[in-house]
Write a protein that binds this DNA or RNA. Structure first.
Lengths: 113, 113
DNA sequence: TGCCATATGTGGCAATGGTATATATTGCAT
DNA sequence: ATGCAATATATACCATTGCCACATATGGCA
């Protein structure tokens, strides 16, 4: 998953992955990056720098909302939570992904996928 | 499948779709575009102009080879066939797609996918 | 003390597929 | 016959995407 081509596969699915990551509860950027890498077994790994850019984009679109968490003796963090619009978008993107993945798998002749 | 976001999903999978389309036999650009749209039930649709660009790219990389077909009383066409390198790349991209699709579906919480 | 993982941020970049536009031919309907 | 849609290829420019290099700062551990 580290070839040039695979990099392109990520385009468009990054938002879905992040939104899905935030579905359960709010998380900060670094955590999202780590979770995506972990949950995918290392198959999908975003550059942290890319991650922040993505988060800003999602926030600008009103799908997530950031909040600074500053506790004493703790590193400052900005956690992001899904907004209602973000939840709707997540559902929409899930549906889109399902259709898309099924179509690609079918044409590519990949079983189940 | 006509939202802005879905457009981005296509990036990276276009090559796999085209290579898979040419696996059975050589086809010309317009035909490839039509087949992808048809086989996906209209879910995935490439702009013909994009398709030609993609074909040139694949040819430049040595994965497909174009050949002008000029028969009397027929429109001139350029058909593309997989090269051995293209066949190898198709196999590689299939594998990459399988891993990627499984990972995304898992994180996104989409069943089977 | 030094180093690494954590945590966020910015600026510039390469690659992708889209869009607009152009040209030409075939076939079909009016 | 005429006009229009579908077929078929081609090119130039464009918006968007995630990557990369780099910068800053803190917490934990040896």
């Amino acid at each position: 998953m580290d070839r040039v081509l695979d990099r392109e596969l990520k385009k468009g699915s990054a938002e879905l992955l992040i939104l899905a990551c935030l579905e359960g509860r709010a998380r900060h950027g670094y955590d999202v990056a780590r979770r995506i890498a972990d949950e995918s077994g290392g198959a999908i790994r975003f550059n942290v720098a890319s991650l922040y850019g993505l988060l800003y984009r999602l926030e600008a679109r009103g799908w997530i909302r950031g909040r600074w968490i500053e506790a004493p003796n703790e590193r400052r963090r900005r956690t992001y939570a899904l907004t209602p619009a973000g939840r709707a978008m997540l559902a929409e993107q899930r549906e889109g992904w399902k259709l898309f993945a099924a179509a690609v798998s079918r044409i590519a002749g990949v079983e189940h996928g």
